[in-house]
Amino acid sequence: MFNEEIVKPENLVYKKTDVLTDVVMHYCPGCPHGTIHRIIAEVIDEMGIQDKAIGIAPVGCSVLAYNYFNVDFVEAAHGRAPALASAIQRLHPNHHTFTYQGDGDLAAIGTAETIHACNRGENIIIFFVNNAIYGMTGGQMAPTTLVGMPSATTPYGRRVDLNGWPLQITELVAQLPGTYYVTRQSASTAADVRKAKAAVRKAFENQAAKKGTQFIEFVSTCNSGWKMTPVQANEWMRQNMFPKYVLGDIKLEGEIVRPYNPEDSKVIRDLVSVK
């Protein structure tokens, strides 16, 4: 179908970076983890910092991320990645230590490590993938599961009287003096991928300048856990996640650019529409 005259090395405009290995990812079809891995790997590649990068894998779906990133990697216990990263970056101050964590890992079991690493202003990057569910264990409720959103442990939808409210931890860490750059991104469209990549680049550059903690949330999907096709899940995310987890920068160069207001906390309390 394609024109063989076009497929030549000199016409190449896009290919998978070598900072990702050729190991086939175990993620479900359409899972954004692969896309987010690639965004981070592309930035490491473009900045030429592969030899300085040390990644920390979490417990959760991305527990095996170390097989896919072609950089040195350490697998942490559940929730403890920011503690590992704090030590590693202090022991290797000119390296680029980053964590890659899900919502359960970062915002439930690892809340203390997250808050304190951010508050100390550790010169690390925290990549936070928020798909509002525990994917690896089979779709249970996460701290970020929306009100009314069904999960394996909230089959009738998240109920506030039983489970409390969704945790907007990204807004929370933005309040801490140690965070320098806090932003919320997504990776479901080419435009969003471009913006997310610019954010990741900014985070690595800030780290090189030793500015403190860089925190990037990726609002994400779990089509298996949400029981949708990948394309439907992306649409559901745009309809239901984006109004509550609003995309864009929250803190830039140590200054809050989108203050948290009572409207935000009202919105997070709204029930989501479930088909």
């Binding site: 394609f2 190449l12 998978k16 079809p29 896309t35 080419a190 991928v193």
Partner: peptide, 28 residues
């Protein structure tokens, strides 16, 4: 690919979670 209308924008490559798409572009 099902037709020859590709403009080499690489949108597909950028969103592919598994990095399986390589994109080429040329002036013909």
């Amino acid at each position: 690919m099902v037709n020859e209308d590709c403009i080499g924008c690489a949108s597909c490559g950028m969103v592919c979670p598994d990095g399986v798409i390589t994109v080429y572009k040329a002036k013909l």
